[in-house]
Design a protein around this nucleic acid. Structure first.
Lengths: 153, 153
DNA sequence: TTGATATCATTTGCATACGAACGAATTTCG
DNA sequence: CGAAATTCGTTCGTATGCAAATGATATCAA
């Protein structure tokens, strides 16, 4: 088949040009990069905690004692992932675990005093992280972006 | 200090209310969820390859033979990560490796015939993945969102 | 009541992701 | 030229993230 035939077929079928797939313009690729950038900014401000670890602490501050699975649901982590995160926070004395009195399947997670202090101390830094992540955008752009991003998540 | 004093201090200094940090509204948290959703959509369309693996193949299709590190730069992966990705693609016969004739430090990566076939076959699916990821947005919103997301990445 | 289902948590295996340390090769510069 | 700095790749350790399998407990329904 000649190049002209190819072009013709393309036009007739209104197919996208397969030779013109640009990785750098795909949402998934840019989303991955934006996420990487945020994690990097986070690490620069809060060196001794990861974003998921901070998310767990911040959410526990909101809702108080919850089961491990429930916490996972609240911060968008599956059971296997949340277990690892909680284990590490527990090893550092930031949360503690106890068994549910009634439902013996459940593992209750709570902030320790130290954990509570840590969240309170870190929240101002978390605000800075959010600001710095959004710094390339104007106030108006931020409002628009957050609205659209929320729709995608 | 009384609660009223606290409130007064807050208003005077125009400080954010520390009791009002909402994890669910932070860019980082939503960015992480949006990325998770995209990976999930990707997996539903392309089961036997991960987004980073596909990114490596798609980029190799663009630029042809490159060094492992250079490829990593192009697809936003550090040296350690790209090595793992390429190792797995190589084990499956989708890329092959060779030594740079002149610069003996460099490891050249190339698509195999099978690898090239795979990318060409998968690109239409990748377009669908992009579409489905952006499906919650209108055409106009997509244009806006992509512009702003690119600024953040 | 009991048998089927569902839920909670754990474990294993695999795949990113990155910092840090390292050796080998190359480039820069005094 | 030759020492210092840089680049390329590898390895190790740690931390998500998820699928799948499993065991324990709880709930539902016949």
């Amino acid at each position: 088949m000649s190049a002209e035939d190819n072009l013709l077929k393309l036009v007739e079928a209104e197919e996208p040009d397969e030779n013109d797939y640009r990785l750098q313009e795909q949402v998934g690729f840019i989303l991955r990069k934006a996420h990487q950038r945020h994690v990097s900014i986070f690490a620069a401000h809060i060196a001794d905690l990861t974003p998921p670890q901070f998310a767990a602490l911040a959410k526990l501050r909101d809702v108080g004692e919850t089961s491990q699975n429930q916490l996972g649901t609240l911060i968008a982590m599956d059971a296997a992932t949340v277990k690892g995160v909680i284990d590490r926070l527990r090893a550092r004395g930031l949360v503690d675990l106890s068994k549910h009195e009634v439902d013996k399947r459940r593992l209750l997670v709570n902030l320790t005093a130290e954990g509570r202090d840590a969240v309170e101390r870190l929240i101002p830094l978390a605000r800075e992280i959010t600001q710095e992540t959004l710094a390339p955008l104007s106030a108006k752009e931020i409002a628009t972006f957050m609205k659209l991003l929320a729709k995608l998540a």
